[in-house]
């Protein structure tokens, strides 16, 4: 196995160390923090944009991080088909950077929410989902104030038609209900993919669900897909 996982670090990122240690210690692959001022991602096999409050979430979540020097490299990495994963604030940055469609709005309640959620995975034709079968329900924590996925109707229909809707908030049995959507996301969408299936954005935190000791290890299953990714040079 060659290559390594690049975990980006923006000023205000706070999930970077969690992501780093999830890949290093729990998945067992080489992972390195990459500073926002870096301009090269040479040799990286996968790129992760972690959670946090990049640039204090001022203006809009992810709006300023989008212009960080490293983002030009992320864009070309993604355009070459390299696997990119945005978690929480990372998802927000990817939509601001137009690497993913839509946007993430304030939660319906206007409050930050932290709790465990269930997610029903649907379209699994994505580089990050080689271990997940369509229809599977995973349990992962969310922790965000701006997690309500929004896109216009046309875009939503297109995402559904293309299989770009990756996961929706659901109840323990995989059913969608008004109470299982924690933040008011359009069509309960928790994760989406780009058209090519190499860029994934998700609001919940797989890197915080890596062991039964801390509440569950469903996140580890998702992150382990990186093992297949590392086998393929970008």
């Amino acid at each position: 196995m060659s290559g390594w996982v690049a975990v980006l670090s923006f000023p205000g990122s706070n999930g970077d160390r969690d992501a780093l240690s999830a890949f290093r210690d729990d998945v067992g692959v080489e992972a390195r923090l990459v500073d926002h001022r870096e301009t090269a991602l040479e040799g990286a096999s996968a790129v992760v944009l972690p959670g946090g409050f990049s640039y204090g979430d001022h203006l809009r979540c992810g709006a300023i991080a989008r212009f960080a020097p490293v983002m030009a490299s992320v864009r070309s990495f993604a355009n070459r088909g390299g696997p990119v994963l945005g978690i929480c604030n990372g998802f927000q940055i990817l939509t601001e950077a137009h690497l993913l469609p839509g946007a993430l709005l304030r939660n319906r309640t206007l409050q930050f929410h932290c709790h465990w959620t269930h997610l029903r995975f649907e379209g699994c034709d994505n580089a990050w989902l080689s271990n997940i079968q369509p229809g599977e329900v995973l349990r992962l924590p969310v922790a965000h104030g701006d997690g309500a996925f929004f896109a216009d109707l046309e875009t939503l229909d297109r995402l559904e038609a293309n299989g770009q809707v990756i996961a929706r908030y659901c109840d323990v049995d995989g059913r969608l209900s008004p109470t299982s959507n924690p933040n008011g996301s359009s069509r309960a969408i928790a994760a989406i993919s780009n058209e090519d299936g190499n860029v994934l954005g998700l609001m919940p935190h797989p890197e915080r669900a890596t062991s039964p000791l801390i509440g569950g290890d469903d996140g580890l299953r998702l992150l382990r897909s990186v093992l297949d990714v590392l086998a393929v040079p970008v």
Partner: peptide
């Protein structure tokens, strides 16, 4: 309303 899962 408090993040209690960060740092895993």
């Amino acid at each position: 309303r408090y993040d209690h899962t960060i740092l895993a």
